[in-house]
Design a protein around this nucleic acid. Structure first.
Lengths: 212, 212
DNA sequence: CCATCACAGTGACAAAAGTCACAGAACTGT
DNA sequence: ACAGTTCTGTGACTTTTGTCACTGTGATGG
């Protein structure tokens, strides 16, 4: 597929050409409609996930109904958690969902491992992925540990803004879920933020104003 | 130093002999008295930290006085965060403190990078370090995000128990700091735990009972 | 056009955690 | 032995967050 090669070149420019070629051979391409789950909690992964197109939302879940937004993945990035689970042959404790229609590459575990020694650029990529996600995670941890819910809400909205723009099509219920809070509380806090002029509330979407 | 080689063999058995030899040449050994900070927030790191002996406490801090226990490092382990900061030439946002007298190896950044391609076992070690710490961090995140303070307190105590044994020499104030709470609250919760028979309170130390 | 449904707003109350004030107990050095 | 310090316990209060109950409102589909 011509299109595929272009995407690879565009978003994975740092990988050496040989590796890109082998990626096309060894990896499975998968197209995901909006809303589809790529990874589910409790699943055993046997592949690493690389994102070619679209937007993925990676979140943490526990036994009960709690879920929790960790970070977004954009094209050219890989899911560190998927590598981690795959490598350990353990159950996934996270889930990934396509926020918008997405196209991913699935690299089988054993291939990914082989490449680590074969291609320096792959190795760098993997290490880089861990590093980036580690930092994201630290930020999230900070927010949860040190900030109160209203600050975290703002943090959450900004994070969404970065990848989705100013118009967020999302319900209060969903937000509550991803911040592990309850709808009523989120409603109240959003109202406050509206009064402060940070955003405007509409039915089923929130309009963020530019930062002053 | 003979002792040093023994320690290396003992705790870093998975590293190939050549690498262990080179470690002795290239890395700086540093002895830390109890309580000493190895890494401070805001510092620029130029080395990765490997632990040979003793116990290190790695915590996160923010601008204000908040601090936050992330995990403990035991001999044979390396600080993933130190690798991360060093590699990025960024300011450290964490701190590491010797809980008991410790001996560490400092591997200069450029050497560590060179080894990544030179020694497969080093490469495996680094990836493994990221993975382990990633998982620890996820656990911590879970605790903070989903658990209430009394559960987190228990989680914290167990974590300490694993590395320090049943007798914890620690004040309520310190605990409060590392859980980002306040002394009074911790005192009260500890009292509850004592009533439940989980532990016994003494001045400046807490005795954990065996898990039933 | 109306029944249904998801979404949003709100008041009242409960629970969890943080803050303030103070007191006593145990250690420390002189 | 005594003063000073650190650690701990506790009651009263506030703030933040969660829960419950109920209302309104727009969308959608027969």
């Amino acid at each position: 597929m011509d299109n595929l090669e272009t995407l690879l070149q565009q978003h994975f420019a740092n990988l050496e050409p040989d590796l890109r070629a082998e990626l096309l051979q060894e990896a499975t391409v998968k197209d995901l409609p909006e809303g589809e789950m790529v990874i589910r909690t409790g699943q055993y992964l046997k592949s690493s996930v690389l994102l070619l197109e679209g937007l993925l939302k990676v979140s943490r879940q526990d036994q009960e109904d709690h879920e929790f937004l960790m970070y977004f993945l954009e094209p050219g990035q890989a899911c560190a958690l998927s590598m981690l689970c795959a490598a350990r042959q353990e159950q996934s404790e996270i889930s990934a969902q396509a926020v918008s229609a997405a196209r991913v590459l699935l690299v089988p575990m054993h291939v990914a491992e082989r490449w680590l020694t074969k291609y320096p650029s792959w190795h760098t990529f993997v290490i880089g992925t861990y590093r980036e996600r580690f930092e994201e995670l630290l930020q999230t941890l900070d927010a949860v540990a040190f900030r109160s819910l209203d600050e975290r809400l703002l943090f959450y909205l900004r994070k969404n803004q970065q990848v989705k723009g100013n118009q967020l099509r999302i319900s209060h219920q969903q937000i509550a879920g991803e911040l592990n809070s309850s709808r009523e509380v989120i409603s109240r806090l959003l109202k406050k933020l509206e009064q402060r002029g940070v955003l405007t509330l509409h039915r089923n979407f929130i309009e963020l104003h530019q930062v002053g």
